[in-house]
Structures are given as C-alpha cells and as structure tokens.
Design a protein around this nucleic acid. Structure first.
Lengths: 202, 202
DNA sequence: GTCTATATCTCGATAGAC
DNA sequence: GTCTATCGAGATATAGAC
C-alpha cells in the first residue's frame, strides 16, 4: 500500500467525520491526523475545500460498498434451506459491517447533505433489496404463513439493519446476542417450525 | 402553553442539532430560531455554554422518553395471540417514533458525547428489553420453533429499531411497507402458521 | 432579560518561500 | 508538495446600557 498523502487525508477525514461529524471536524485536525503540519494549508494542495474532501470520502466509501456487494458470494443452496438461509443472513450482517463507514456517514450527515440519501438508497438499498427478494423467493418457494412476501422482506431487512445499527450506536449487539446466534434465530423464524424431522438445532 | 425563552432555546437547539449536529450548530443560530437577536449573547442568560444547552436538551428528551415508556398501554390479551402481538408491535413502533429526537441525538452525537450511550442504554434499552422479554414470554408461552427466546427477542427488537431507523435515514420505510403491514408481518412470523390447524408439539 | 457592541479565538482558505 | 505566516469570516463568550 503506497498510502499517498491524498489517501491519508481521506482516511483522516473519514475517521474524524465519523467520530465528530462534518461540522465538528476541522481542516487543521485532518492535517494533523494525516501527518501534515496542523494549521498549514497543505490540505489545500489536495482538496479545494472541506466540502470537497467530504464528497470524496463519501464517493470512496460508496465505491467500496459497491465492490463489496459485487463480491458477495452466494451461499450454496444445500438440502436444508434453513442452513442456506442462516449462512446468507450471516453474509448480510458481514456486508453491513464492511460498509459501516458508509452507513455512519449517512446516519450522521443526511441532514446536511440530503443528496447522500438518494445516492445510497438507489445504489445499495433498492438494488440490494431487489436482489434479496429474488433470493428469498427462490429459497422459500412455498413456505407457509408468508402471505405478504414484500412485508416479510421488509422485516428481514429491518432486522439485519437494526441489529447492525444497534451494535453501532449502543456499542454492543441487542440483548448481547452474537451474529451467528442472531442469524440462526432469524432463519429459524423465517423457515418456521421444523418441517419434517425433529428440531435440528440444539 | 407558556413557552418561556429557556424552553424556546431548548426547542431551537434540539431542532438544529438534529439537523446539523452539535458541531454544525451555532449559538447565533439557536438565538435566531428562538426569536432572540442573533449574535446577541442573550443565550448566555439561560445557559452557560453550548455544551450545557446540549446536555439540557438531552436530559429533557430522556425525561420525555421515560414518560412515554411509563405511559405505555399494554394491549389487552385477546383470544388470538397474534392480534395482541400485532397491536403490541405497533405500539412499539409508535413509541420509537415518539422518542425519535432522543434516538437521533444518540445516533448523531454518541461519538462526541460517549456518556450518552451508557445513559440511553440503561434507561431505555436494558429496561425496555427486560419488559419486552416478559411480554413475549407471557404472550407466547409454548410457541414451537423458538428454542432460543433471548435471540428471538433480539430479532424482534432489531426488526423494530431497524424499521424505525431505516425510515429515518432513508426518508421512507423499508420496501415502502407501512407500520401496520410491517407489524402484521412480524407478528405472523413470530406466531408461525395459523393456529387453527392442529399440530404436534415438539 | 434583551439589546448593542466587542473581546478573543478558531476556523477555512490563501500567499509565497523552499 | 510541505512549510511559515497570515487574512478575513465567523464562532464563543462577555460587558454594560436599558
């Protein structure tokens, strides 16, 4: 990793904005964290303004998120749909963890930069939800008790994002449940009571 | 409605901090929104500093949230547990909507004011989750397929908070599902397939 | 308790040496 | 491309008249 000054500035800006917000972050602070002389205008040899560096930070995180989504490996559809589903849900949680900076930027600055909302929504959420709907429809073709598939999808997506955001805001997962246990419980909820044999989980 | 100057300052500060964050909010802006002369130090006849007004805003929202929680009306336990559960989940969503300012403050400023995390967590989440666990245990005494009640609780809480936060950050609910439909789907998921059909216990 | 006025400081941004 | 130095704007906070 070459780590150019420009990249160190982006790293510093991301870190500070995540912690203190855009309004609470100073160019001097960014310079200092990037290893430049604080108060010198060296920052401005790389970015024209504080707003510009924010947009660059945001774009970089958006690109990273897109790449993470493309690299999404679909879990193999095994004989047991619950197993496949659990694995898929765990991947989703892992994906959310990987794009954490993007989510944090959105959560913090969607008031000051309203265009973030549209961008993230169309790039990740709409597209991601559409894909997820396909997966759910494929993995659970005729599951009973799911007479509103769209609402079911909303529940699953909400559960995953809620788990992630609770962990983020409160510093610990809801009820102290780790991701694997959470995914298992959610998958069990979706697939319903064991279909043929006795309970597989134990 | 007396609306003292102090209260108008608190209102103004809350609104601006929610929109721009603590670092992006100025005392001058608070004064202006509170109907005082912008740039005059009139603010300082009521609060000693910007930090102090933030803490006062936070305390006020915390009190409001506590009162909302106390006023929580428990839905009557009807013959159909799914109905009761749906109503209860809708109340939870309504509760989250009512304490929205507190959640927004936490989401935005938990980096700058780490003590917010502990306070909100102990005042709302821990206590709320404990109560919710009781309710779930009571409403769903022997529901099948729930061999990990703690994880189930985490799923439910995550789904509710995720629904709320997605609506907040993205400006619309997940998949465009309204609260009633969401609660219905979540309740259906928890209670499983319709109860009329006889089933064997596990 | 609100105003005008202002002290003091920090911030964003620029100029120019090297 | 980084530094020292600094400008001008705007921020927090204070002083004192009314």
């Amino acid at each position: 990793m070459p780590s150019t000054t420009r990249e160190r500035i982006l790293d510093a800006a991301l870190e500070l904005i995540q912690e203190r917000g855009f309004g609470g972050t100073t160019v001097t602070g960014i310079e200092e964290l990037a290893g430049l002389s604080p108060g010198s205008g060296s920052f401005y040899r790389h970015f024209r303004s504080k707003e510009e560096v924010f947009r660059s930070v945001f774009e970089r995180e958006l690109d990273r998120a897109r790449r993470h989504r493309e690299a999404f490996e679909r879990g193999p559809v095994t004989a047991d749909p619950r197993d496949a589903l659990t694995r898929r849900l765990l991947q989703q949680l892992d994906y959310l963890a990987r794009i954490r900076p993007l989510i944090t930027l959105l959560a913090r600055e969607h008031g000051r930069f309203p265009e973030l909302t549209r961008t993230v929504r169309s790039a990740l959420l709409d597209q991601g939800i559409a894909e997820e709907a396909d997966h759910l429809a494929r993995d659970l073709p005729g599951a009973p008790g799911h007479d509103d598939p769209h609402a079911l999808l909303a529940v699953v997506v909400s559960a995953l994002t809620g788990y992630h955001l609770s962990s983020e805001f409160f510093g610990r997962p809801p009820a102290g449940i780790d991701p694997a246990r959470f995914a298992t419980a959610l998958a069990a909820l979706i697939t319903g009571p064991p279909q043929e044999a006795s309970r597989t989980d134990g």
